[in-house]
Design a binder for these strands. Structure first.
Length: 536
DNA sequence: TTAGGGTTAG
């Protein structure tokens, strides 16, 4: 009795040390235990696994005279966590007492290393052994790999096989909806959570808030936030980031103040959200002062991402020199994002001299990002420097750099439709789009010729800009959606000036609200105006 | 003692 009690107690202590980050003490407890049973040894293996000490875990495992299934599973997890999926598989295959946990651990290992084909092979092989964790692992895996539609499809299969989803399932699905901008689907999941009375904890609450913001429904996001019993730093951060990306800079700052009042300490992510919010709303002095307070008042050392926000904030508002000085004063080496922010600012404020200087740095750091070349090319184009535009294009061809194709999606009746720039195969939509162009031209819209070079590497420049993906998506929305319904479009890149103007005209001429999420932020078009005040 | 979920800069 005494021995058992000791072992259980000491194992608990070992586990406690491991979980609070003190591997040394955990190991000491283990070594000094008078006797060690399987459970204690498994706990030690898990502790090693937590800290990536694969060799120690393996040694301990190999020396065990007796093992239970948890021993095998702990080692599988250990290899997976250290990205040694191949070794995990060797243990998995050797394991004589495979249970559902072994399979799930192995599937998760494949998911985390983005080997979804292998994960799916095991998933299929499991047949009736699958439990809800298996399904959750696969769904989360697809989300982590960016295969959002697959994740949703798998969920539908899960329902058809009558497996009862859990709050974990919901979190992954909401994350998929947030990425896709699939509001209808997100709302359906919220409804499902309510009818099935699924507990809304921190994580699920945060997933809902994030989904509503990223799908363009600010009010619903705020409502969920206020409905939560408890809010942790993730929830506050999502609110600050969400408000900022919709252009509610002042409200984001207010949220930050409210958060402090509630006694929650901001972290690095909070400041990314806060500075970014200031940047989108042109709150230059507020942003400057929060940046300077970060370390002194809040004890948070600014990271490269915070410098990135500041350079964007300063550059966008026209303080190009100050932005450059800040880059020079950074304690770390500036990366492509930092230089990219300044390049965009040079483009906006038509400073070709600084733009060239910045580009040298940028292209040496990130020679394969097509977007950078496009931006430089646009900068030259806006200054009528066509020789340089041409050189830029040739350089891209020489280096084999391709611009990411523009892609927009729109959700109609629960189905997400995707459109790619320059797609002229959908004749009906394009005919309709041409009609829209004529209509808004009659109301004063003039196509901006400088953005014709937005897609420098494409031969069919004309048709590409005429059929930028967001235009096709909006045309499709106007064709298929009931009058008065908000058109919501998600684009993978930043929208160009010309499309931005075009959307403003449509919102006025067709009396339609358009909410567009681009790579950077949200644009709410209504009555000929955009919520970003043309500042983006 | 073993498996699944959340926020972040161009």
């Amino acid at each position: 009795m005494g021995f058992e009690f000791d072992v259980i107690l000491l194992t608990g202590l070992l586990d406690f040390y491991a979980k609070v980050g003190d591997l040394g003490s955990a190991r000491k407890v283990f070594v000094e235990m008078p006797e060690r049973d399987v459970i204690a040894t498994n706990a030690m293996i898990s502790a090693f696994s937590r800290y990536g000490c694969v060799e120690e875990a393996k040694q301990l495992f190999e020396n065990m005279s007796q093992r239970n299934s948890a021993s095998w599973n702990s080692l599988i997890t250990c290899y997976c966590k250290s990205s040694e999926v191949h070794n995990a598989r060797l243990i998995f295959d050797r394991n004589p007492m495979k249970d559902v946990v072994s399979w799930n651990a192995m599937i998760d290992g494949y998911c985390k290393s983005e080997q979804m084909v292998k994960a799916d092979e095991l998933f299929v092989e499991m047949e009736f052994m699958k439990n809800v964790v298996t399904w959750n692992t696969m769904i989360a895996g697809y989300v982590q790999c960016g295969e959002f539609v697959r994740a949703i499809n798998l969920f539908q299969r899960m329902l058809s096989e009558e497996v009862k989803p859990t709050e974990v399932t919901m979190v992954s699905l909401l994350s998929a909806c947030a990425h896709l901008g699939a509001l209808d689907m997100g709302e359906w999941i919220h409804g499902y959570i309510r009818t099935k009375k699924i507990m809304i904890d921190f994580i699920l609450g945060n997933a809902l808030i994030d989904m509503y913001f990223k799908c363009g429904n600010v009010e619903a996001a705020i409502q969920v936030f206020h409905g939560l019993h408890d809010r942790n730093i993730f929830c506050w951060n999502s609110v600050i980031i969400g408000l900022g990306m919709h252009g509610y800079g002042k409200e984001a700052v207010d949220a930050f103040i409210a958060m402090e009042r509630e006694g929650i300490k901001p972290d690095g992510v909070t400041f990314v959200g806060l500075l970014c919010s200031c940047s989108h709303s042109g709150l230059v002095s507020v942003g400057r002062s929060y940046f300077s307070e970060m370390k002194i008042v809040y004890g948070i050392e600014p990271g490269i991402e915070h410098y990135g926000c500041m350079i964007d904030l300063l550059g966008r508002s026209g303080c190009l020199q100050e932005a450059l000085e800040l880059i020079k004063s950074m304690p770390m080496k500036p990366n492509a994002v930092v230089w990219g922010g300044l390049l965009r600012a040079c483009h906006k404020h038509k400073d070709a001299k600084l733009g060239e200087q910045v580009t040298d740095n940028l292209l040496s750091l990130d020679p394969h990002d097509g977007g950078n070349y496009v931006f430089l090319s646009n900068l030259y184009a806006s200054l009528n420097r066509w020789t340089e535009v041409d050189q830029c294009r040739k350089l891209m061809i020489k280096r084999g750099v391709r611009k990411t194709p523009g892609c927009s999606s729109i959700e109609v009746e629960n189905i997400v439709y995707e459109f790619v720039a320059g797609d002229t195969s959908r004749t009906q939509i394009n005919v309709f789009l041409d009609k829209i162009v004529k209509e808004v031209q009659a109301h004063g819209y003039e196509p901006d010729t400088t953005t014709v070079l937005h897609d420098v590497e494409d031969e069919e420049k004309e048709s590409v800009v005429r059929y930028h993906s967001e235009r096709i998506a909006v045309a499709f929305g106007l064709m298929t959606m009931q009058p008065g319904r908000i058109i919501r479009v998600v684009k993978n890149l930043r929208t160009c000036d010309d499309c931005h103007t075009f959307m403003k005209f449509i919102s006025n001429v067709y009396k339609r609200e358009i909410i567009m999420r681009d790579r950077n932020r949200f644009h709410h078009f209504r009555n000929g105006y955009c919520s970003c005040n043309d500042y983006w």
